[in-house]
Design a binder for these strands. Structure first.
Lengths: 361, 361
DNA sequence: AAATAATGTGTTCACGTGCACGCATTTTTT
DNA sequence: AAAAAATGCGTGCACGTGAACACATTATTT
């Protein structure tokens, strides 16, 4: 018999009822309001009461009904976002869009406050973060480019009891309740693999942008390491050249690359470890025999991919990161519990001309 | 100045209030209950009232608050799922898991009723679908392997006013409110590209499973076409051989492939267009110089990928399809409106040993 | 010691929707 | 023509949580 039907009404036993705050209150021998105050750490309860309530929650396996919570949420949750500033179409623009979009659709009453610092200046970060501390907030969402400064800032947040989450990249060992990002090193390896899979390269050109030189605040160091390690391991004789370009002087880029090529005419492989392979598109257009791999599905990069200038993009759903991060963080702020899972690594996608359709949502 | 902050409290003007049923009722000059009856097509209202309500809804841009809807949903929505039967770990098992999981977490009171037919027998489909019609349901979720039978069944559903959605594959031009799936032809092309990107193949072995022979109910025909078209276009001299294997007699598979190889010793490329490349894993293990590409991230396939027997898997988040499909369908049943977008195509992922981590969620 | 503040707890309304129920009025049946 | 059914519409409770409020009791200040 191939046909049958089954009911999946309750995951558990026949008439298992999902516990509510009322059940917790009864179990703990207190009122619903008290349970609520314990859960949300709003004070006004004794240590003994807290224990009874928390035990009851654990015993009954209670977790808040998010629909009801969203419906009832009146006071806005203030979430400060301490992130790099951006121009339209840049990486952090996408992160920002995901955040703003989610804030609107998530159903919680979220009040996002953006603190955008200059990615090239640690002073700017410090200025922004101290401004943030003067503002009343319920939680902070931030990334971690300036390690020392981030560590110091996180200590301050810990002291004040303000929960915080890292997005996109992080520093290990701090008190954040959440991290949503990806495996940067793996991404570097993957780019190297894709670049070299059609045959052994004699020489490779790695295009970097000027500010990468600053080792203190270089977000792509780990990714580049992954790239170089892969090449070193699999093609030990291959030489990797580096050329620096200035994104603020785009007119100089193509000449710089051309000049390099005439000095190293055997180069047939080009890569960037930042999100700006599109800056090399004009150069690549003139040299269809050069394989190229870059990162991130910025609109301009995708254009270069579709045109065939770039072979592969290693990327992930950028906006998914921010959406997911904000969702988990908001839920956590709402329930008063840290997210069940602390680290969320998103999958690295490989984009090629043939599978790009449908990637952008 | 690099720091600033902005509020995104309301997407629109300063104090824009999202309209509720009450606003609609006032605008239309009726009571809230009447609005509700119109929205959910539960009868008991005049044609003129309906128009007034619908106009008001459009004018104010009303759409139901899903949190409140989920919270208040008391009567379960009965959704019948008419899908291929499966063994554990097979493709449709994943689809099924996604459905069951979603039904539990979506927050609506969903009552899934599974009608599983034998993929190799159109009679079984007919039997199942008529059984389904004897059961009271609010909506039907189905896929489309047997075209004629599906068309007939859909007519019946249209007549009865039962909304239905296609999942994974569909038939164009029918009255379904929703389709969630992917571009099958594109997937075939992509597999061919990945198989051949490291160099021109002399001969290719396409491994098919026995029941593919039946052209009426062959779900992989289009995918295979994409594969063959790509090869034909880019490598016109390459010969594509086909070997049929029987998944029900796994012990015969490796000998069959070995026999083929000794007859065609130049073959270095192997592909399947179904989800069972793992059946060729033992053979591939013995021939590490053979490139192989398959479809779908079934556990066994991923194992073969990690072991290096398979180079690439073309796939998509299988369970995402069913999760997304059920979510949109349930929301549609709840609001009484068809989903804003009818066709949802998921992105094709390329899986390789280096990016498999984190793919499974 | 009285006034004031802090602490601990319970009560109540609000959020927006689903849906049962009740009551009139009109239409159909007997 | 009376009874029954169908139609059209409004009212009210329930869903589970957030959070203000009210009220005692205890601790602190004046």
């Amino acid at each position: 018999m191939h046909a049958f039907f089954a009911k999946f009404a309750a995951l558990m036993s026949e008439n298992f009822k999902i516990p509510t705050v009322f059940d917790i209150a009864r179990e703990a021998g207190v009122s619903r309001g008290t349970v609520d105050r314990v859960i949300h750490r709003r004070g006004r309860f004794s240590a003994e009461t807290e224990k009874r309530v928390r035990d009851a929650i654990k015993r009954l396996g209670y977790s808040a009904n998010l629909n009801a919570a969203k419906l009832a949420s009146r006071k806005p949750r203030r979430i400060a976002c301490l992130l790099p500033s951006f121009k339209e179409g840049e990486y952090w623009d996408y992160i920002n869009r995901g955040l703003v979009e989610s804030a609107g659709t998530l159903g919680f009453n979220l009040d996002l406050q953006m603190f955008l610092y200059d990615q090239t200046s640690s002073d700017s970060f410090k200025e922004c973060s101290s401004m943030l501390l003067d503002t009343p907030v319920d939680g902070v969402l931030l990334n971690a480019v300036f390690k020392d400064e981030v560590v110091e800032f996180s200590r301050e947040l810990d002291e004040r009891g303000i929960p915080y989450a890292f997005i996109d990249n992080n520093v290990e060992g701090l008190g954040n309740v959440l991290y949503v990002g990806f495996d940067v090193y793996r991404g570097g390896e993957l780019a190297a693999f894709l670049l070299t899979m059609s045959g052994k390269p004699e020489e490779i050109l790695l295009v970097r942008i000027l500010r990468d030189k600053d080792h203190r605040g270089d977000p792509n160091r780990v990714r580049r390491q992954g790239f170089l390690d892969y090449i070193g391991k699999n093609f030990p004789e291959t030489v990797v050249h580096t050329v620096f370009i200035d994104p603020n002087a785009p007119e100089g880029i193509t000449p710089t690359l051309e000049a390099f090529l005439s000095e190293h005419p055997h180069v047939r492989h080009l890569a960037t470890t930042n999100s700006r392979i599109h800056l090399a598109a004009p150069f690549l257009a003139a040299h269809p025999d050069i394989h190229a791999v870059g990162f991130d599905d910025l609109e301009k990069n995708v254009k270069a991919l579709k045109a065939g200038y770039v072979d592969f993009l290693v990327t992930h759903h950028i906006m998914d990161i921010s959406r997911e991060c904000l969702r988990l963080f908001a839920e956590s702020l709402s329930t008063g519990e840290p997210p069940a899972q602390r680290n969320h690594y998103v999958h690295l996608d490989i984009l090629h001309r043939l599978n790009i359709d449908g990637y952008e949502r």
